[in-house]
């Protein structure tokens, strides 16, 4: 799932300072689940912006909408009527959602209210962590299902660096050293031979940016 986080209010205010009437668009998929851009967050941000404008002696009129998946052309189509009534759109979708609306409604400026952060999973309620770096060349078969590319701060493939510290990472002592986790998992499974192997550098051609995949029809 895509994990995003709302931009600081000040940044959002500056983006839309010139407008009197905007449409806030949420997305019902990933960003709803990570509490960043669902219907609820749209309502709160709209209210907060109205109050903020009023605080500064102005007035902002808002319309609100939340589409099922903002990254799908067909699904943003339903915004048509509302977009006609406003000067600009503030999207609470991920970057893909922002661009889908911007591409479909080219006449209207579309602004991002979120910073799209990473592919993540919930660790507990309200906490999401990055476990997959979308590197395009999955390495998990060699590491006991723990990704060193993204969970090691340096993305090392051949074992821990000298900064590993009692199972934690030197960069952030709150975070586990991925290579200590990998070692423990492989040891438990009797597969430490995998860790002793040499792995050559990553192939950055695995995803040629910008990425594009055409599936085979079944």
């Amino acid at each position: 799932m895509i994990i995003a986080e709302r931009k600081p209010l000040e940044d959002i205010k500056q983006m839309i300072a010139q407008y009197k009437k905007i449409l806030l668009v949420g997305c019902g998929t990933c960003v709803t689940v990570c509490w960043a851009g669902g219907e609820k967050e749209v309502g709160i941000l709209a209210s907060q912006l109205r109050l903020a404008f009023r605080r500064d002696g102005g007035e902002l009129e808002t319309l609100e909408a939340t589409v099922e998946r903002q990254c799908e052309k067909e699904m943003v189509e339903e915004l048509k009527d509302k977009i006609q009534q406003v000067e600009a759109v503030l999207s609470l979708g991920c970057g893909a959602g922002v661009q889908t609306i911007a591409d479909r409604f080219e006449e209207t400026p579309v602004y991002p209210a979120l910073n799209t952060k990473f592919v993540g999973m919930p660790e507990r309620e309200g906490l999401w962590i990055e476990n997959c770096g979308a590197c395009g060349d999955c390495f998990l078969d060699r590491t006991g299902g723990i990704c060193p590319i993204v969970r090691c701060a340096k993305g090392l493939l051949n074992g821990p660096c000298g900064g590993t510290n009692k199972g934690k990472c030197e960069v952030d002592p709150e975070k586990d050293c991925a290579w200590t986790l990998i070692y423990r998992r492989l040891e438990k499974q009797g597969r430490l031979d995998l860790m002793r192997k040499y792995y050559p550098p990553r192939n950055f051609q695995a995803v040629v940016r910008p990425g594009k995949i055409e599936a085979q029809r079944v």
């Binding site: 821990p160 000298g162 590993t164 290579w179 040891e187 860790m195 002793r196």
Partner: peptide, 21 residues
Amino acid sequence: VVTPEADPIEPQLIKFDKKVQ
């Protein structure tokens, strides 16, 4: 380089081995 006092030491030793190889 190698860190002889790394804790835990085992992953460090594996890496040392790989560097020698």
